[in-house]
């Protein structure tokens, strides 16, 4: 209110913030034009607001990250949530051409490696196969590594025997690995994709399903071969890589959704 000829309350701040209705704004503007005291007060409050806006927020003097990291617990990523549409309406996602090309290239590499692997799997009973899962765990973000650590088996034209790439965090997988841990993620993502099929761009769905079908064929072949030679570390690794490739491709779709959601 304008009391005793001066603006006494929060309306002056509301006026400065542009939050007053038009009639009240005009009333205060008229008053300020003719009242030096209130006009000066308004200027002083503007200065306060300006100072507040210009305040800097430097980083803390000490690095707090070590203390934070020490308190972080290992967490399992709930993959399905990235596909939930929420209340914001249908979500339509399209992969970019480079993403599709990358996925296709990955399929070619993996399928080729798998075919070669199957064709050259004669004595394959030495146990362990290392599979690089990237830096972030079994279902991490790095593309699955196709390289075998099996000594003495060399792809044609590659020269020396391949060695394990990647970090020292590579996990060693025995021939009788547990496929269920891949299957849980695959089942969950497949169900979510099925549920949200109509929310995705049709072309994206088509390409994604074609790629997944290719991987499924490789998985089926690997399973059959493993049934015939259950002790083969090579075939176990090959099956694991196909499963991991499938999870990886599905996770890429999740990342695209996540990126689109900001």
């Amino acid at each position: 209110m304008i009391d005793h000829g001066h603006i006494q309350d929060a309306r002056l701040s509301e006026y400065l913030d542009g939050e007053l209705p038009e009639p009240e704004r005009l009333e205060i503007e008229t008053h300020l034009a003719g009242c030096d005291s209130c006009s000066r007060l308004a200027d002083e409050l503007r200065e306060v607001i300006t100072h507040a806006h210009q305040l800097e927020t430097p980083a803390p003097a000490e690095d707090l990250w070590p203390g934070i990291e020490a308190r972080l617990t290992t967490r399992v990523h709930p993959i399905a949530r990235w596909f939930r549409g929420g209340n914001s309406g249908p979500l339509r996602i399209s992969f970019t051409i480079p993403q599709l090309a990358a996925a296709a290239a990955a399929l070619i590499v993996f399928s080729g490696a798998g075919a070669w692997w199957m064709a050259s799997r004669a004595p394959m009973n030495t146990g362990a196969v290392a599979v690089n899962r990237g830096a972030s765990g079994p279902f991490g973000t790095a593309a699955p590594n196709t390289t075998s650590t099996q000594p003495g088996i060399t792809p044609a034209g590659t020269g020396s025997a391949p060695v394990t790439r990647g970090s020292t965090k590579n996990a060693v997988m025995t021939a009788s690995f547990d496929e269920s841990r891949y299957q849980v993620a695959i089942d969950e993502l497949t169900q979510v994709l099925r549920t949200h099929r109509d929310q995705l761009d049709p072309l994206t769905v088509k390409v994604l399903e074609e790629n997944l079908a290719t991987i499924d064929r490789a998985i089926t072949s690997a399973r059959k071969a493993l049934e015939a030679d259950p002790g083969s570390g090579y075939l176990s690794g090959h099956l694991a890589q196909q499963l991991e490739l499938k999870v990886w491709l599905l996770r890429r779709a999740a990342d695209v959704v996540a990126a689109a959601q900001g």
Partner: peptide
């Protein structure tokens, strides 16, 4: 999304 997936280095970047 990397941090949401449990990647601590990605979470450090957010930090």
């Amino acid at each position: 999304s990397l941090a949401a997936g449990g990647d601590r280095r990605a979470f450090e970047r957010l930090y």
